[in-house]
Design a protein around this nucleic acid. Sequence first.
DNA 1: GCCGTTTTCGGCCCGACTGTTTTCAGTCG
Length: 577
Amino acid sequence: MPTRDVNEKIADMFDTIADVLELQGDIPYRIRAYRNAARTIRDLPQPIEEVAREGKLEDLPGIGKDLAAKILEYLETGRMSKYEEVVSQVPPGLIELLHIPGLGPKRVRLLHERLGISDLEDLRRALDSGRIETLPGMGKKTVENIRRGLALYEASKERMPLGRALPIAEEIARQIDALPGTARVVIAGSARRMKETVGDIDILTIAEDGEATIQAFVRFPQVRDILAAGDTKGSVVLHNGLQVDLRVVPPESYGAALHYFTGSKAHNIKIRTIAREQGLKVNEYGIFRGEERIGGEEEADVFRVLGMPWIPPEMREDRGEIEAALEGRLPTPVSLDDIRGDPHVHSKWSDGANTIRELAQAARARGYEYIAVTDHSPRVRVAGGMSVEKVWQRQKEIEALNREFDDFRILSGAEVDILPDGSLDYPDEVLAALDLVIVSVHSGFKMSREEMTRRILRALENPYVHILAHPTGRLIGQREPYPVDLEAVLRRAAELGVAVEINGYYLRLDLDDVNAHLAKELGCTISLGTDAHQVDHLSMMRYAVGVARRAWLEPQDVLNTKSLPDLLAWLQRRRSG
DNA sequence: GCCGTTTTCGGCCCGACTGTTTTCAGTCG
């Protein structure tokens, strides 16, 4: 069975080939070609084997005759001779050194050729012995930078989940905003694009006195190390290890700089290429025709001069958004304002921290029309799963609460465990009495791909099921997705009218952006749920929306953009049909 | 190595910062 694991594998091989070619001083354009191809394959929603089978490898952007042949070779033989050839030419540990900030191909090569440094351990020893300073072009400061780069690399091998990093960034932005002379402040970079993890935080500001702003910034209490502090740029590492860069930009360049520092890099490259074709130049200072500045104060200027509408940051990954914008078919992605309720919330009846009343009040205060309280079923013992008896008791409480509200509705729901054989953890008569039934896998992850697929497919067949939650079970930075033929699951869900979830809990974000896009293409309805276990978690809806926007989902693709009457009709549809 | 209503060769995004350079190389975003 083809899987996207193979995509990852081939993308990694191409990236490694690019690394080695860099070390060998090959021409930059060939190196870039490998990197572009790696990115294309990594972002591909379907297994590359399918593309290969249809003979469409060369239709993929950045894949030509040569790379298509290499992919085919790997798919057919399990090996790629170019990869094996280049990898055998360098010591295995040398490639990793390229990933240390401050070390590029030239310096790694110098270290290797002159000092015999071949891996992290060699580098650490050479730093301690002071030998590196004897090399040409390696002064004390460069060596010190490499030392810091090594520490940074080891400390931050893992990127920080967006749900941790964004609140930290927002707090720092607030502190900058409170400084005297700050006119504007905005978070840019991958955090603005709502990428599921971020490597560092980029913040832009317009300030009267750049130097004073930077000096204040590097003295914020969260700061552990100051990496740079000039009059337009400051760079720090916080106590939690997160790197934050602050840039002071002039008002006339604000929009151009915001676009530039939001990225992604691939998106920016394509924008600049298109600008060049039109005889324009786009950089972080503005948009220029010859010497003449024709825009740059607002971000929309960048897109307008190139003849396209403003593209939402979450879509700027060079996954076709620029072409879509130019052709006037850029979707308007779902936004937080479109969300009318939260269909996945836990109360004290299972492992939630708050009462149903507290959850309802918090949801109502957010402007929602409804929530579904979806406590766990008994099998999930660690989560205080509800016995059938408790389901009936809870039902009474919900009915009583609903009589108190005339502009808000609590739906009685459950997150029902999918047992290893694919049956559900409540009998049908209980499911039938619930307004909204979520199903999900919480245990028995270690089955084969075929068994897991069969298990989930069987659960979907139950006519009382409305939503499949966190369909891959992954936890960012903690647990890989369980093996499953996700495409088969999504296909069947679309046929049966079962919605699939983008779980907004910051460690889940499951489905992810690529799979959520695939789900849309296959015709699935998608439910954005927070899986909140306390009232504060209701705010994680913004992460679910972020993933949805990265997946190009529009309001009509999303279950909980429906009004309460429309939602109730949708919930009834499968049961009555 | 890819790509093409400026096509099959000759391009390929581009500026800043840092350190060590005496005019610029290496790295980064």
